[in-house]
Amino acid sequence: MVPVRSPLGLRFFRHAPRAPRCSLSGGESIDHHLLKLELAHASRAVGYHAEYEVAAPDRSWRADVMATSPDGAQRMALEAQLSPITPEDIQQRTNRYEQDGVEVCWFGLKPRLWVGTVPSILLNSGHEGGGWSVSAGIARMTKLDQDSSFQQWVPVEGVSLTDSVAWILTGRMRPHRPQSLAKSVLEQVSRQWPSSWVGQNSHGWDVWWTTSSHIETDIQQHNDYREQVHLAILRAESPLKAFRVRAKIENISALEKLILKQFNNNAMRSLADFQIRLDSNYADGLAFYGYRWDGSGTMRDLKPFVVVCPDILDRGSQYWTHSVPVAFPVTYRDRLENIKNVWLFDLEKGAIWPIEPKKSVTDAALESWKSVKPTDSSSPDMT
């Protein structure tokens, strides 16, 4: 035994990790013993070889259950951690496994301070006859409401211990530390940490198990947020530079020629009849304005006839009150499902065409600017 002091100042004795002959160190609770049996059984159910109390050659670690893949290439320690341990100690033990190329997952029954600081899963012991099941440790990403553009982590419930071990060993689930602003797991109704995840004296988890697709979503959401921050800084410095970065359009002059060629049906109209500017009224898109005659021959109004790359892709179809066609590079094709009156353009090919039938786009454009008459009736083959 060795004397130790907890981070809260509590003094107690602990079994030395390299004292295998200690007559007291081999005692196990019934839950600990049964959990080891369940972990080994679940490992063998997916074709893994499972051994009890496997120790490192230098005795730096000893796994409750060591699951080894059929080809011997992958080893994972499945640890039944039912007794108290500090976050620092369990992190050190995890590090020792990783140094020897051994993955590890810690299984517990209560939300203690160490839970979630390392790859962890909390379980219901199944004493009520329902079998061992996961109470915390597996999460997925979803929108908490239909109109939200931001995805949040929510708990995955109803998973058996057998299924969770199978998913872990076969790579269906991986431990993940959240990257985006969504750094907590919330119940969809209460919008709070689930009670099964966080005990009264426990903090929020830092790492949980999830699938590769949800990890990719989290990373993409993180990257999108960083890009938005970067664009906000650029927008304050140079709106046009921010537009180029967001829309990925460097050759603005080529874009101007293409747009004006398509929408200007009056050969006598000069460039002075047009205004091109970034417009916050149109979600920071590059708005192409032109004069629209009111029929009297003396009065004319300056109206937008198309807006290029407005920042509306994550805002659904409700972007402004009156209809103005929008245009995006052809690379945006798959992101425009819910947006109406859309044109695509390819600066390299010098082509622009409507996604929707020609008539509907033309009618929408005429409502905004009566002299719009698209000249090209064909859509180029972009495949």
Score class of each variant (00 low, 15 high):
residue 6 S to D: 10
residue 7 P to G: 00
residue 9 G to W: 04
residue 10 L to A: 15
residue 11 R to T: 11
residue 24 L to V: 13
residue 26 G to D: 03
residue 29 S to A: 04
residue 32 H to C: 05
residue 34 L to Q: 12
residue 38 E to P: 07
residue 40 A to L: 01
residue 44 R to V: 07
residue 45 A to W: 04
residue 49 H to P: 04
residue 53 E to T: 02
residue 59 R to E: 11
residue 63 A to S: 11
residue 71 D to M: 09
residue 71 D to Y: 13
residue 74 Q to G: 02
residue 77 A to T: 07
residue 78 L to Q: 01
residue 80 A to Q: 12
residue 84 P to L: 04
residue 85 I to P: 09
residue 96 R to H: 06
residue 97 Y to V: 05
residue 100 D to P: 01
residue 100 D to Y: 05
residue 101 G to K: 00
residue 102 V to L: 05
residue 108 G to I: 03
residue 111 P to T: 02
residue 112 R to K: 15
residue 124 N to P: 11
residue 131 G to R: 04
residue 132 W to S: 01
residue 132 W to G: 01
residue 133 S to D: 00
residue 136 A to H: 01
residue 143 K to P: 07
residue 146 Q to A: 12
residue 146 Q to V: 13
residue 146 Q to E: 14
residue 147 D to E: 14
residue 147 D to T: 12
residue 154 V to Y: 02
residue 159 V to S: 00
residue 160 S to P: 01
residue 164 S to G: 02
residue 166 A to E: 03
residue 174 R to F: 07
residue 177 R to K: 11
residue 177 R to W: 05
residue 178 P to S: 11
residue 180 S to E: 12
residue 182 A to M: 05
residue 183 K to W: 09
residue 187 E to C: 13
residue 188 Q to L: 14
residue 190 S to G: 07
residue 198 V to Y: 03
residue 206 D to Y: 09
residue 211 T to G: 12
residue 213 S to G: 09
residue 218 D to P: 08
residue 218 D to I: 04
residue 219 I to W: 12
residue 219 I to D: 11
residue 231 L to N: 07
residue 232 A to R: 14
residue 236 A to C: 03
residue 241 K to A: 15
residue 241 K to T: 15
residue 246 R to Y: 15
residue 248 K to E: 15
residue 251 N to E: 09
residue 256 E to H: 11
residue 258 L to E: 03
residue 258 L to P: 02
residue 262 Q to G: 10
residue 264 N to V: 02
residue 266 N to F: 04
residue 267 A to I: 13
residue 270 S to N: 07
residue 274 F to Q: 01
residue 274 F to E: 00
residue 275 Q to V: 15
residue 276 I to Y: 00
residue 279 D to T: 10
residue 281 N to Q: 12
residue 286 L to V: 05
residue 293 W to R: 07
residue 296 S to G: 06
residue 297 G to Q: 03
residue 298 T to C: 13
residue 299 M to V: 10
residue 301 D to Y: 12
residue 303 K to Q: 04
residue 304 P to V: 03
residue 306 V to M: 03
residue 311 D to I: 10
residue 325 P to D: 00
residue 327 A to Y: 07
residue 330 V to W: 09
residue 330 V to E: 15
residue 334 D to T: 15
residue 334 D to E: 10
residue 336 L to H: 02
residue 339 I to P: 01
residue 339 I to V: 14
residue 342 V to P: 04
residue 343 W to S: 11
residue 346 D to T: 03
residue 350 G to T: 00
residue 354 P to R: 01
residue 358 K to H: 12
residue 359 K to N: 11
residue 361 V to H: 05
residue 382 M to Y: 09
